[in-house]
Design a protein around this nucleic acid. Structure first.
Length: 841
DNA sequence: GGGGGAAGGACCA
DNA sequence: TTCCTGGTCCTTCCCCC
């Protein structure tokens, strides 16, 4: 606590040499640290580290204040709780499993040295001038280590050879090693390319009964990389694997007693692991270190004990485990990093014995999760169950670059990242609901901004739609200053479960009977209509929130009924800003040509299944598919559906668009067509090519696109087609504006009509106010509830939206128009917050 | 008070 | 001149139910 205010000294704990790594013992730490410090000083990175260090110091100071307030009584109580839990944990201690942690020695560097023998005697590292992935043991003597920038490493060791990474090669070697692992534990858990946990309990059980021949391995010339063939009688032992590390405790302990022809391995755990390491070396010419213990935590620590090219075992006896833990520095334990280390050090805790002594105090200063973890560590407990194939939680991609201040470039990069991420997601068949944008500015300050969509996404367009809005908010927040970035990343998380992922395509009936989203849209639609009554301005008529599944913008998503109630203060502020800037954004985006990802006539062929007749259509383009569905619908069993159900559908279709900016409205007007035109025209709107369902089994993409628009053409699931004008959305990336066009045109060209979303009857739109009044009259609670009750939801995620509508209806005497308004467009949401939730802030 | 989203951060390889 | 990438988990804050 003494030196918290001396930046330089403090900073050492963050950026100075971490000699925790193998091969780092006995270095001239002071000299190395001086070089690191001098090279770093004054840089933005250094400044940021200083800031972070101060934050940690503040945390420590707070903790110490808290500690000072702890009474003896509290401590006594805490000790009792600790003792109780300790007893329970002791009782459940499991020593029966034999867990092995195998770690390849300086993996990337070793592979490069193997393939380029000239490097063997030189200090070398793998990586670049900006960052090193790993270094060989020669280089480590100079203080060169993984996660160190190359230019600093060069200062420490001017003769350092830096080799660029070659992941394909490492992956190939890793595959060879994993093949061997799987013979000892078919369910082994790979942690990275060079590391894995194995549970060899079963293997040892069988091994006991194995004859010697099954445990005999002949020695190959490691250089050739041949398999160590169990049955090969003659095999030369000309040369062992290259000695990668001259300070290796024993280059190949397994062979110290070998007679040069073959090695017979015993049946014990040590022998099995020695055999495994021997085979790895024979196969890859690379050495591995291993730890053997009753649980994963201990095995991990053990594998580090005799690194490189060694192994260590903790036998399954409580006393031995406790003895081993006693002197172990807490930092050696996986999960204890530099921050935790420093916080514990402030409490006088450096090794696990001290950790154990101070547990009561820790239980009062740290969260339950944290101190339970500390307790486990101090007792030498860890997981005894190797869980393989645990489900991935997120997927991301990020890029670091030189300063980037140009917004256009940033959007473009963002799109690139979304493109890459979409490919990765699709390769693994994943779809997630949360899109997170990560930004690091030139000051090394990291920001993440996330948005959770109402459905899972995996395409570039879908991800970009959300990411670019998040980016825009950040760009605008510093405007007119440019956002100066050095890193951008995009992540998708909140994956839908494998169950939900099954690509089920529902029948048209299933679709029509489905659930809350329709009703939700219905109410939203109605709300929009009602909203239009308030706006005497014809241009803002019908501004429903988007149900467009293709590329809804964040702002559109945010205005979903469910979402409105979950807006955080930040979100509300963000939403407001988004709204204010929507108009500008659209013109900016248009100007920047970021919207024309799919301009021109779509000639792409797809394999699609008609949702009406279930016919599989090969090599069909979207327009033809669209036409097919239209034809199908004309003669389909939609007759079974009460007529009034179709109308909301229609209206939902039409409402599947966000509000247009006035400039776009003008654009729409100027490009106005005959409202009944149905011909296909190129569109700038993005078509989504896959036939899938979302997590709720809802139709996604083409079919939904069909419902909204495919390749510029809007089709409506109804026997009555709505007038459509397709070339109306030139300006927008994320939105289509057909309804706007319809209404624009409807009001422009006398005599056109719109179908009432409630009663399905075509209504003249010559007078919008009249039309609105008609809808208002049609729209009443009975209709809504009747609709709901005759079409119960089937567990759809949008159901809460309806519940909230009902709830409000039930609890409030407001007329339907008022109630629904709450769920309507984003333009009303702002007002809603001001008048309702906004008051709470 | 619990659940869940968002943001940030620790930690790992 | 130059300090990564991709992942998980935890904590804190906030809102809603």
């Amino acid at each position: 606590m003494a030196s918290h205010h001396q930046g330089g000294a403090d900073l050492l704990s963050r950026i100075a040499l971490n000699d925790n790594k193998a091969g780092m013992e006995g270095l001239d730490r002071d000299k190395i640290n001086k070089i690191i410090l001098e090279t770093s000083k004054g840089s933005k990175f250094y400044e940021n580290e200083l800031k972070k260090e101060q934050q940690v110091n503040q945390r420590i100071e707070k903790m110490m204040e808290q500690k000072a307030r702890i009474t003896k009584e509290q401590l006594k109580q805490a000790q009792a709780e600790v003792d109780k839990l300790t007893c329970e944990l002791e009782r459940s201690r499991e020593l029966g499993r034999v867990i092995v942690h195998v770690d390849m020695d300086a993996f990337y560097a070793a592979v490069e040295m193997r393939d380029c023998p000239e490097l063997k005697d030189k200090p070398m590292a793998v990586g670049s001038m900006s960052m090193l992935s790993t270094s060989n043991y020669h280089a480590r003597r100079f203080g060169v280590r993984a996660a160190m920038p190359g230019f600093i490493a060069k200062k420490l060791c001017p003769n350092l050879v830096i080799v660029p990474t070659n992941f394909d090669k490492y992956r190939a070697v890793s595959a060879q090693v994993r093949e061997i692992f799987s013979e000892y534990d078919p369910h082994f858990m790979p942690m990275s390319l060079d590391e894995a946990y194995l549970d060899i309990t079963e293997h040892l059980e069988q091994r006991k009964h194995w004859p010697e021949t099954m445990r005999t391995y002949h020695i190959c010339d490691a250089k050739t990389g041949n398999d160590a063939d169990r049955s090969a009688a003659e095999s030369e032992r000309d040369e062992l694997s290259p000695v990668l590390f001259e300070d290796s405790p024993s280059s190949s302990p397994s062979l110290s007693g070998a007679d040069g022809k073959a090695e017979v391995f015993g049946t014990s755990a040590e022998e099995a692991v020695r055999e495994m390491r021997f085979r790895i070396e024979q196969k890859t010419s690379l050495t591995a270190s291993a730890g053997i213990a009753p649980n994963m935590m201990l095995a991990k620590v053990c594998s580090d004990k005799n690194k490189p090219n060694g192994q260590y075992r903790i036998p399954p006896e409580r006393q031995v485990v406790m003895e081993f833990m006693k002197d172990l520095p807490v930092r050696k334990v996986s999960g204890v990093g530099k921050v935790t280390e420093k916080m514990l050090a402030a409490l006088g805790i450096v090794n696990c014995d001290q950790l154990s002594q101070q547990m009561a105090l820790l239980s009062l200063l740290f969260s339950g999760t944290s101190w339970h973890n500390f307790l486990h560590i101090s007792l030498g407990l860890g997981s005894t169950c190797i869980e393989r194939d645990s489900e991935r939680k997120s997927m991301s991609t990020e890029r670091t670059f030189g300063e980037m201040s140009d917004a256009e470039e940033q959007y473009s990069l963002c799109r690139d990242l979304c493109h890459d991420l979409a490919q990765d997601l699709q390769r693994e068949g994943l779809k997630g609901k949360t899109v997170t944008l990560k930004l690091k500015n030139v000051k090394f300050e990291v920001k993440t901004r996330a948005f959770t969509l109402q459905y899972a996404v995996c395409t570039e367009e879908e991800i970009f739609a959300a990411a670019k809005d998040l980016l825009k908010v950040e760009i605008d927040s510093v405007s007119p200053q440019p956002l100066k970035l050095r890193l951008m990343g995009v992540r998708v998380s909140g994956f839908i479960s494998a169950e939900d992922k099954k690509p089920l395509q529902r029948s048209i009936m299933g679709f029509l009977q489905k659930d809350g989203s329709d009703s939700g849209s219905f109410t939203q639609c109605a709300g929009s209509v009602l909203k239009a009554q308030e706006d005497s301005d014809g241009a803002s008529f019908l501004k429903p929130q988007s149900t467009e599944m293709k590329v809804p913008s964040v702002s559109e998503q945010k205005s979903k009924s469910k979402g409105t109630q979950q807006q955080s203060f930040f979100q509300r502020a963000q939403l407001k800003r988004l709204q204010q800037q929507e108009q500008e954004q659209m013109s900016v985006m248009a100007a920047k040509s970021l919207s024309n990802t799919n301009s021109g006539t779509d000639t792409t062929s797809y394999f699609l299944t008609c949702p009406v007749c279930n016919t599989e259509m090969k090599d069909v383009n979207l327009t033809a598919f669209n036409n097919h569905i239209d034809e199908c619908l004309k003669g389909s069993a939609v007759d079974n559906e009460p007529t009034h159900l179709d109308a909301p559908k229609e209206q939902e279709e039409l409402n599947s668009k966000p509000p247009a900016s006035s400039s776009e409205s003008r654009a729409l007007k100027s490009s106005s067509h005959d409202p009944s035109c149905n011909e296909e025209k190129p569109s700038t709107s993005i078509s989504v090519p896959l036939v899938e369902t979302d997590e709720d089994g809802d139709f996604k993409t083409p079919f939904f696109s069909h419902r909204t628009k495919i390749n510029g053409k809007r089709s409506v699931i109804s026997k009555k087609k709505m007038p459509v004008c397709e070339s109306s959305c030139k300006a927008s990336l994320t939105t289509t504006h057909n309804l706007e066009a319809v209404t624009e045109m409807s009001s422009d060209s006398k005599g056109s009509s719109l179908t009432c979303p409630v009663c399905s009857q075509p209504q003249s739109t010559d007078d919008l106010a009249l039309f609105n009044r008609h809808v208002d009259m049609c729209l009443n609670q009975e209709v809504l509830l009747e609709f709901r009750e005759s079409h119960p939801p089937v567990g759809h995620s949008d159901e809460p939206a309806l519940k909230s509508v009902r709830g409000q209806q039930g609890s409030s005497p407001l007329p339907p128009s008022k109630k629904i308004k709450v769920l309507s467009t984003k333009h009303t949401i702002d007002k809603f917050f001001k008048s309702n939730a906004g008051q709470k802030v």
